Lab assay of single mutants.
Amino acid sequence: NQASVVANQLIPISTALTLVMMRSEVVTPVGIPAEDIPRLVSMTVNRAVPLGTTLMPDMVKGYA
Rank of each mutant, 00 (worst) to 15 (best):
M56F: 14
L10E: 15
A3D: 05
L19Q: 10
T18G: 04
A16D: 06
M22E: 01
M43P: 00
T18D: 06
M21G: 02
T44V: 10
V27D: 01
V26N: 09
A3T: 08
I11Y: 01
T15E: 08
I37M: 10
L51Q: 14
V30P: 09
V6S: 01
A64P: 12
I11R: 00
S24R: 10
L40R: 03
Y63K: 03
N8R: 11
V45A: 05
V27Y: 01
P38Y: 08
R39M: 13
S14W: 14
Q2E: 12
S4I: 01
I13Q: 14
P33M: 06
M21Q: 04
L10H: 13
I13R: 12
V5C: 05
V60I: 14
A3I: 06
V5G: 01
E35G: 12
A64L: 14
G31S: 02
R47T: 15
M21S: 05
T44N: 07
V49Y: 02
N46G: 07
T54G: 01
L19I: 08
A48V: 13
V45D: 00
E25Y: 07
L10V: 11
T53Q: 13
R23D: 05
L17D: 00
S4R: 01
P29Q: 05
V5H: 01
P50C: 06
S42P: 00
N1D: 12
K61I: 14
S14M: 15
M43V: 04
R47H: 09
M22F: 05
P29D: 04
S14Q: 12
R39F: 10
A34G: 14
P33E: 04
T15F: 05
M56A: 06
E25C: 07
T44A: 09
M43D: 02
T53H: 12
L51R: 15
T53A: 11
I32S: 01
L19R: 14
T54M: 04
E25H: 09
I32K: 01
V27H: 03
P57K: 08
R39E: 12
A34Y: 06
M43H: 09
I37L: 13
N46K: 10
V27C: 06
L17F: 03
G52F: 04
A3R: 12
Q9I: 10
T54K: 04
S42K: 11
V6W: 02
R39L: 13
L19P: 10
N1C: 06
N46S: 13
P29E: 06
P50H: 09
I32P: 00
T53G: 13
I13F: 11
A48K: 11
I37F: 02
M22W: 03
L55P: 00
I13Y: 10
Y63A: 03
L40T: 00
P38N: 12
L51D: 12
P29C: 04
A48G: 11
T54D: 00
A16G: 08
A34L: 03
P50R: 08
V26H: 13
D58H: 10
R23E: 05
S4Y: 03
P57F: 06
A3G: 14
T54Y: 03
L17P: 00
